[in-house]
Every structure is written in C-alpha cells, then in structure tokens.
Amino acid sequence: MGTIRVTDLEGVTHTVEAEPGRSVMELIYDAGLPIKAACFGCCSCSTCHVYVDPEWLDKLPPPGPDEEDILDMTAEPRDTSRLSCQITYNDALDGLHVTLAEDTRPD
C-alpha cells in the first residue's frame, strides 16, 4: 500500500491511499474527492481527466488509441493530460502526483 497526491479544483492537495491494481480514478473516487467520472472507467467520457506532474509522466505507459480519442474531447488538453481511469496504480507509482482538470467537476 502506497499513496498518491491529488490536487483538487480548489488547488488543495490531498494524500490518498493507493492499492496496487486499482485505477487512479477509483482511488480518487474512493477517497471521497469530487470527481465526476461519469462513465466510471469505460474510457468513454473524459470526466476523470487529470494533469500528471511532469516528473511522473515518463513513468506511465503512454495512452492507448482509445484514451487519445477521449483526450480530444477534454476542455483543456495539455501534454500532461491523462484519463485517471486508464492509469493503473502499482508500487512504482508510490507518490504519483496528479491535478484534477476542469472536466472532472461534478454538476
């Protein structure tokens, strides 16, 4: 068990417990942080969009074609954009820092 750091839309950074094998979206959701995650992991909706701390970007496998298609629909894509539902946590990601994008704002 490790932790990840999540900066919310108000700029507050939370430390969240992280269990290997779970998606970063699920970790954020289970921690009770506000994240819309409308399709809840189907890689269909862009409402779990996060910006990954540049220091961590290279440690992640690159987005697949499905994820790239959905990133096209995000409000403000950047080079560090990822869908948190497509990042599976493992021990090598202990300390990973992501920032919630505007797309994640619940209604």
């Binding site: 409308a38 909706c45 862009s46 629909m73 409000a75 797309d103 209604d107």
Partner: peptide
C-alpha cells in the same frame, strides 16, 4: 468537442435533490 451530461432543466422542477 463531443458531449457531456448535465442535469439540465430537471433541476428546476421542484424535486428534492441530494448531491444532484
């Protein structure tokens, strides 16, 4: 840019809401 889901006008129908 694709579609997103919004509660929309239903929010003003006088219904008791909890977390939308």
């Amino acid at each position: 840019y694709g579609l997103t889901m919004k509660l929309g006008p239903i929010a003003d129908w006088g219904l008791e809401l909890k977390n939308n």
